[in-house]
Amino acid sequence: MYHFDWVVFWKYLWPGTALANTMIRNGLIVTIVVSIVAQAIGVALGLLSALGKMSKIAPIRWLSDAYIWYFRGTPLLVQMALLFFGLGVTHIYDFPDIQLGFIVISGAIQAGTLALGVNEGAYMAEIVRAGIESIDPGQLEAAKSLGMTYSTAMRRIILPQALKVIIPPLGNEFNNMMKTTSLMEVISASELFFAYTQINAQLFKPFELFIAASLYYLALTTIWAFIQSRIEASLGERKSTIKTPNVLERIFAKGSH
């Protein structure tokens, strides 16, 4: 019978003691910051490639299609390893540490963030495209008939409306992103899961430590669920027809699948 080590478990779960550990504290910060930056890269690339897919210029369409095809069709873990180890060994880019004031951003974090962001962009592209295509074509016609160019019409008329369709799945993508940052462990980026694996290497208590680690991720995604509800509720005020799920429905995924 396995003896569960409650002392280790509580030490690495209770924020007062767990966050006193620099590896865990920094790991948590890295996980949050990388999630936000990678999601932002994903949204930007998703927007670009969604517009690219709808471009009149064929090579731009092909480029967007190829990007989405490759990054959705290959494993993120492989993409990350390819980017970090592959580019490193060719010396195309060595991912040197970057010093920003007091903070050093390691090469692994840069590569991991980039891989997460570029991978996410391919998924965001479909979400953005679906959002744009959900808007009545009459809106673009009305904008054009008023003398707006395609880019003005997109920026001022189509995208602001599409945003309401894009935001809910975007929130779900961010939930995923926070969990997926743990893949960066394989390239030794010092995020939250990596911190726990390092501690485990010293204590060898994988059951206790990884339960504690999982509960930190659960806390992050639960807090995000509350924030997401708030954001969607404020959007919902202007669009009363679609019911936004409340936070309990969201956490337990009721009625969504």
Partner: peptide, 11 residues
């Protein structure tokens, strides 16, 4: 131009 379905900008 004025359209059959108005096409006002709902946002």
């Amino acid at each position: 131009m004025v359209f059959q379905r108005f096409n006002l900008f709902p946002h």
